[in-house]
Design a protein around this nucleic acid. Structure first.
Lengths: 232, 232
DNA sequence: CTAATAGTGTCTATCAGACAGTATACC
DNA sequence: GGTATACTGTCTGATAGACACTATTAG
């Protein structure tokens, strides 16, 4: 108890979005050792006078340009295996961010390139193998995706993947993509519009694909869903 | 990115048990500054070559004498406000442990005293006020209790609060104490015995308070409950 | 016997899932 | 018109909650 071993603390982000009908994650190509040239989750070191959520918000803005008010950001968990970074002892605090489809990613200072990649392409790969993510980011990504899937069941967070206004069909496609299974459009509509506080109707509608115009909704005040939407 | 600010990383534990029909948490009285004499959650510094779960298991064993095989231990989250420890910059990784009623706590090397305290007595207090927990442990405790409450809904973890063999009545009392609300014994019995994989019946029974002997059960193989038990 | 806890059966309101049918757009 | 999407209504099987009833112990 008299010695205080010190550790480098980083914050890493699992930034998820729904693009082209697939769940995608923001990745950056590492410009430095270790793992130079490999894809990794965006992140960086915790600054001396910065709280953890602030660091996550700062990294998010540096990598994507979005301010944290536009996305849902929550702590996922920490990872600290002694050999996770060959340079030194590190502990990373991972966050997940759920974002609407964003403009092209902004390359950060420590990243040579930034790209959205479908989650299915990455989690299918063996950890540590060719094309796999650097560090233990393979595990972080898996945990983050599972957290997002679970959260859709009992919170209204699916709306975080949509813009400020969206249709019930938009929301349903989010669920279908994240859960990777089809949902009955009619039952889904009845369910989400019947759950108090989930959605707030606007007076406007939109038409896109030659169908009946759909009403536009905004996020309601609810923070959890009772009863939950079940994956089965 | 060229500087690596270092931080002291600690692991803190929210060890919960059901004792005397109340949800209780293990606290230790601090023997050193800061917060000397205050109650705090047990915890300590991460060792140089130790993974996070290993550190949590080691601290648990040091404080309670139980090995991690006997309890459920899972990561709760990390807390790293820059001023959370006046000595230096620290980040703590908090774990929750759900344990059956244990023998009298063992005082650790850095604790003058250790004691179970009812959660209700602690979370009712103002953070930082008289009798409150040291550091930001008030918030950690609140988060840990809420995690435990939520986990009982959709996992069979309530059994972690019971011994190796227990009755349906024992299990129901765990739910009632953790959720702080009465449950119908008959519906509860039908529900938990009807959920596949939750409980495994033994061929033995027990009688305690002058009622019909109750069958003893062990934990089943299920890791989640479908459908969940709902708090309402 | 009474009191207490364990466990089963039954009823009802509600809900998830299946799916018919109507509404309103584009072509 | 045809096709596509949005939305409403209806049916059915399953379930949560309420509660009557039986079973088996202690005292």
């Amino acid at each position: 108890m008299s010695e205080y071993p010190t550790v480098a603390v980083t914050v890493d982000l699992v930034v998820l979005t729904v693009r082209e009908d697939r769940l995608q994650v923001l990745t950056v190509r590492r410009g430095e050792e270790p793992y130079r040239g490999r894809w990794a989750l965006p992140g960086g070191f915790l600054r001396p006078d910065e709280d953890l959520p602030a660091a996550a918000g700062r990294e998010l803005e540096e990598e994507t340009g979005v301010t944290s008010g536009q996305v849902h950001l929550e702590q996922l968990g920490s990872y600290g295996a002694p050999d996770r970074d060959p340079r030194m002892r590190t502990v990373t605090v991972a966050y997940i961010a759920l974002a609407a489809d964003l403009p092209v990613p902004v390359a950060g200072t420590d990243a040579a390139d930034a790209r959205w990649q479908p989650v299915a392409d990455l989690v299918g790969r063996t950890a540590g193998g060719r094309g796999a993510l650097a560090f233990d980011h393979h595990q972080v990504l898996r945990d983050g995706v599972e957290r997002a899937r679970a959260k859709l069941e009992y919170t209204p967070l699916a709306a975080a993947f949509c813009g400020r206004e969206f249709t019930v069909g938009d929301l349903r496609r989010v669920y279908e993509v994240v859960w990777d299974r089809p949902l009955d459009p009619r039952n889904f509509h009845r369910k989400v519009t019947g759950t108090a506080g989930f959605l707030e109707a606007t007076d406007r509608t939109t038409a896109r694909d030659g169908g009946r115009p759909a009403r536009l909704y905004r996020t309601g005040p609810a923070t959890s869903l009772h009863p939950p939407l079940l994956r089965g």
